[in-house]
């Protein structure tokens, strides 16, 4: 899932400066699942904004709502009130949701309340870790299910650097060395030959190298889109 983290309150408040009537909009997708941008958090943020409104003489009127996903058109129909009724919408979705919604409602500013941080999974209650980088060229088959791109802080493709230390990364002793994990797993399974093979420099075109990415599913796509 896409992990999001709430922005510092002051940063949010700064972006709200020009507005009075604000909708805090939770997203029922990843942001809810990672417990940062669901309706509950929208309710809490709305409450914070109302609380700060008086002392800071901001005259904010804040409501909250949440929809199933902010990255799909149809769910917008479930909004209790149209975004057009507000001066701006503070979206608690990932960057995708914020942009998608502002495209749907071009007349209403959609502001991000969140920082979109990584693709991750919950490893324990309240703990999420990065598992995928979205590089567009998955090598997990070679590394036996542990991604060197996402889980090595240098995205190295041929093995650990000299910074690997007791299984941890040089960047932080809280961080596992991805290559240490890969090595351990391959060694355990007798598959070190996969490690021994030189990996050519990564083709970053599938990552961001070739600019904005797009996926077209021929069997689903409408005719015009296909030609475009």
């Amino acid at each position: 899932m896409i992990i999001t983290e709430r922005k510092p309150f002051d940063e949010i408040l700064e972006t709200l400066k020009p507005y009075t009537k604000v909708l805090v909009l939770g997203c029922g997708g990843c942001a809810t699942v990672c417990l940062t941008g669901g309706e509950k958090q929208a309710e809490e943020l709305a409450s914070q904004l109302r609380l700060v409104s008086g002392p800071k003489k901001l005259d904010l009127q804040v409501e909250f709502d949440s929809i199933t996903r902010q990255c799909d058109r149809e769910f917008a129909e479930n909004l209790k009130q149209s975004p057009d009724n507000y001066d701006c919408v503070l979206s608690m979705a990932c960057g995708v949701g914020v942009q998608f919604m502002s495209q749907l409602y071009p007349d209403v500013p959609f502001l991000p309340a969140m920082n979109t941080t990584f693709y991750g999974a919950g490893v324990a209650l309240g703990v999420w870790e990065e598992y995928c980088h979205g590089c567009g060229d998955c090598v997990l088959a070679l590394t036996d299910g542990i991604c060197p791109v996402a889980r090595c802080s240098k995205s190295l493709v041929n093995g650990p650097c000299g910074g690997t230390n007791d299984g941890k990364c040089e960047v932080s002793s809280d961080m596992d060395c991805g290559w240490y994990l890969i090595y351990k797993r391959l060694a355990e399974k007798g598959k070190l030959d996969q490690f021994r093979k030189i990996q050519p420099p990564k083709d970053w075109r599938k990552d961001r190298g070739a600019g904005v990415r797009r996926m077209i599913l021929k069997e689903m796509v409408e005719e015009e889109e296909c030609q475009a």
Partner: peptide, 11 residues
């Protein structure tokens, strides 16, 4: 009521 208060979706 623990889950009620913790549910991120108010669901």
């Amino acid at each position: 009521g623990i889950c009620i208060a913790e549910c991120p979706a108010n669901a």
